[in-house]
Design a protein around this nucleic acid. Structure first.
Lengths: 129, 129, 129, 129
DNA sequence: GTGGTCTAGACCACA
DNA sequence: GTGGTCTAGACCACA
């Protein structure tokens, strides 16, 4: 598992771990049905408390991204479950961002322009910040 | 002041209050130079502790949105300070939303489409969710 | 009296007034023995509370810069009193600044250099900030 | 932590505490990455309220001098952040002192002389006042 | 254990 | 009246 945690960050470790797994699932490194490391082994690998890994797995399970089968382990949800959930949360976060921008006084035209320039910058491989 | 707080939410009350004031400033209800309710009166009106209101005011002050003058009161910052800060935070939140959507597997084209449909729905006065 | 007050500043009005009078005395506009406006007239001219002017005069009196003679008015202290006091407070503030700079990790050489460049910039009539 | 507070002073305790920590960071007693006492323990040691210590820590955090990590503790900022901030505030305070001295009637030459003699006295280990 | 939020309430300087 | 400081103490999430 290529996961790096920032132990000095203010975002809780368990949230960082959730986000990392989501990223791996979102970009296809972890595909539907793939198994994840056991709670203990991942905890050891990352040097964090097994409770923290447990918590992250449980959160992802509640979001329909993981499936934990007692005695067998944890897996990326079968079928389209994980992918659909991911896309759905992505869309919601995006819309929340648009809503915030509107409430901060940006016009719809400006918002679209920001999106376009941000995305085209991304395509060209430029770091944006 | 039309402010509603969710006392059961996990987001701190002081953050909710900041957000409410930002909304009022963003949509023009509160304009540059306008005075805000006193720490005590707003606390009483909202049924929260004066310290909490003061904390919110201080956060907004540090962001350049408010000015608090001992013995006088608190005011929306003069000049463009408030407006510029608001727009800047709006832009950053929007870009963070785009970034999240990308990491969740949405394509740039989909993202643009979501923006466009969300904004056009807004224009027509439809609630989106 | 060429005094401008910033009513929106966080520094108390009475302190601003003291500082203004000190400036006028320091640069020679107000000389030893000169009379100051009465408490009431200055208060009216500046649009502030007479108590505030009263307080400023009292503070300057305690510093040996003013002399108030009941029934006659207030004057810049006779003899060298005002000038000596001003220079003395100037020197102390300067030394406090040096002390702070040292405690913040600046070397004596750096401090001297900052002084020299700051003063030469002043001479050339350049605004420094 | 060798910190002494003046509970009778007019300068707020939280500001005194900030200044003390800044001094310790400025002179190298506290280095980049060093951990500070916990909010509670320092409060108890100094006989003040934990809220006051927290306030000081937050102020220093906003200045880029500290990092507070929930559940972990508070630390002097990594990298050059703390040092740069300290030096910058030191320079500004020094320049403000020079400005005040000028407005009090001291000439540039006198100001330079005061700096030189003050600093050379320091070098010889003489207390200046 | 750690920092963070919040309440209740006293007291201060300033206007 | 206004905002600012401080105390005392409860409760929370996180490690």
């Amino acid at each position: 598992m290529f996961i790096t945690l920032n132990y000095k960050s203010r975002t809780p470790i368990c949230d960082q771990l959730c986000e990392s797994i989501i990223q791996l699932a979102g970009c296809g490194v972890l595909a539907s049905g793939d198994s994840l490391p056991s709670v203990r082994s991942l905890a050891q690998e990352l040097g964090i408390n097994p409770n923290t890994v447990q918590k992250s797995y449980r959160i992802l399970e509640q979001q329909g991204i993981l499936e934990s089968i007692p005695g067998k382990g944890s897996f990326i949800a079968r079928g389209d479950g994980a992918r659909v959930t991911l896309r759905e949360t992505g869309r919601k976060t995006l819309e929340a961002g648009i809503e915030t921008a509107l409430s901060r006084g940006l016009s719809p035209e400006e918002i679209l322009q920001i999106c376009e320039s941000y995305l085209s910058n991304k395509k060209e491989g430029n770091a944006h910040d």
